[in-house]
Design a protein around this nucleic acid. Structure first.
Lengths: 223, 223
DNA sequence: ACCGCTCCGATTGTATACACTAGTGCGCGA
DNA sequence: TCGCGCACTAGTGTATACAATCGGAGCGGT
């Protein structure tokens, strides 16, 4: 990651995710040069890459703009994620190794510990999300499709932009936690249809949680 | 498309597809400069884009190499395509407009004409593939998911690399043609499950046709 | 003879200068 | 006063020069 282009990519991406560069803001190459401390060439390369990953939109001779996501975009995004993650989970149920199952179990145990511990809520949620990502990535890889892994990685990255704007509630996190436990059971049982179904629920619930209007007790993100 | 970078992209991509740059061959920037008639900057940009679309593989300080696809890669690719195109067709069945249905019908009629006409076989197949792409794209767009359109576009582009190496048989094309006709019936009937199922068959048959070992009467590509 | 080290050439990565495009604001004319 | 057009400028697109890096060839030591 010593690359100037990579550093620029990381820096700009991080700034987009934490709203330093808010949605729809224009990213001028000269500003980014100052921001990243590298010359225009790697900055341009980083922007093209971010455009390929849908973080920014580039129009010819008019530079880059941070992409914004409408509610419909999010529906679209999470529908596809549910389809693909469900498919991945189903394939994983047939193929997953015992070692991977143990890793998932370990991650779930760690989640237990985090949630039961005395850390600040924000810290708990952050830890949970990190472990959540680990669980999902194990499942992706266990699906045996490299292409699926990269597609899902991309979709999840895009969802991140929406997620970081959200407050996360512990009740939402607890629901996710239960999904993970059930997923583990389904995978252990090598039950393809069950794994697919619970994963789809997991993702669709995550979409719902992003909506500004809470249905009953809590609004919050995370999956 | 007057861009130097775009021209470089098109030129290199075309050369990869028609095997001017065969799989695994190394693409040196200096050579591409001569080949495309533009300077290194746009050539590099084109390469990065081709890498993002999986046409080439770039390793740091070691340049770009044309990607090759193993049989497993193709299985993977077509499995995902079947899943996503099926999904798209199902959604399209619920949403497609009468105008789009007429366009599909028109394309199918044109296919009829092409196949019944007296053109050379190669010409027939090329025309058929063009119309095939049109039909698929109408279905994609009718699914109402922009993201799905771009993902499928990408997957199909990747499949192209494998397809161009193939001989296309007319019997294979005829099978595809029947799939299209049945798809149109399913869409007209607004039968989501039917549309999804026939589209999945269509794609899986296309995968099968790419295998070097013909099962019975013919090997050939195209979908 | 074989292994490892160093130097050199080839190739990619980065910076910067120059070219072009498009958007903007001012001025001129009606 | 309003509309049109032109010039100016900010910003992106392209070319090229310079720096860093990798791989291989040649040499020397063991």
């Amino acid at each position: 990651m010593a690359n100037a282009a990579d550093r620029a990519y990381q820096a700009i991406r991080a700034a987009i995710l934490d709203r330093t560069f808010p949605p729809n803001s224009r990213l001028k190459e000269a500003e980014l040069v100052a921001f990243c401390g590298v010359s225009r060439t790697p900055v341009r390369e980083a922007l093209r890459r971010l455009a390929a990953e849908d973080f920014v939109k580039i129009q010819r001779n008019q530079g880059a703009q941070v992409r914004s996501w409408s509610s419909d975009d999010l529906d679209d995004l999470f529908s596809l994620r549910a389809l693909l993650e469900g498919y991945a989970a189903g394939r994983a149920a047939k193929r997953i190794s015992d070692a991977d199952l143990r890793e998932i179990a370990a991650a779930i145990d760690e989640m237990d510990a985090v949630l039961a511990g005395g850390a600040a809520q924000q810290r708990k949620v952050a830890e949970f999300l990190r472990l959540n990502r680990i669980v999902h990535e194990i499942v992706w890889r266990a699906s045996g499709s490299a292409r699926l892994v990269s597609m899902l990685g991309r979709l999840v990255e895009q969802a991140l932009t929406a997620h970081t704007a959200q407050k996360y509630s512990l009740s939402r996190v607890a629901q996710s936690h239960h999904h993970h436990q059930e997923l583990l059971h389904a995978l252990r049982a090598r039950d393809e249809a069950w794994a697919e179904a619970i994963m789809r629920s997991h993702i669709r619930a995550a979409r719902q949680a992003l909506d500004p209007v809470p249905t009953e007790n809590a609004a919050g993100g995370g999956e």
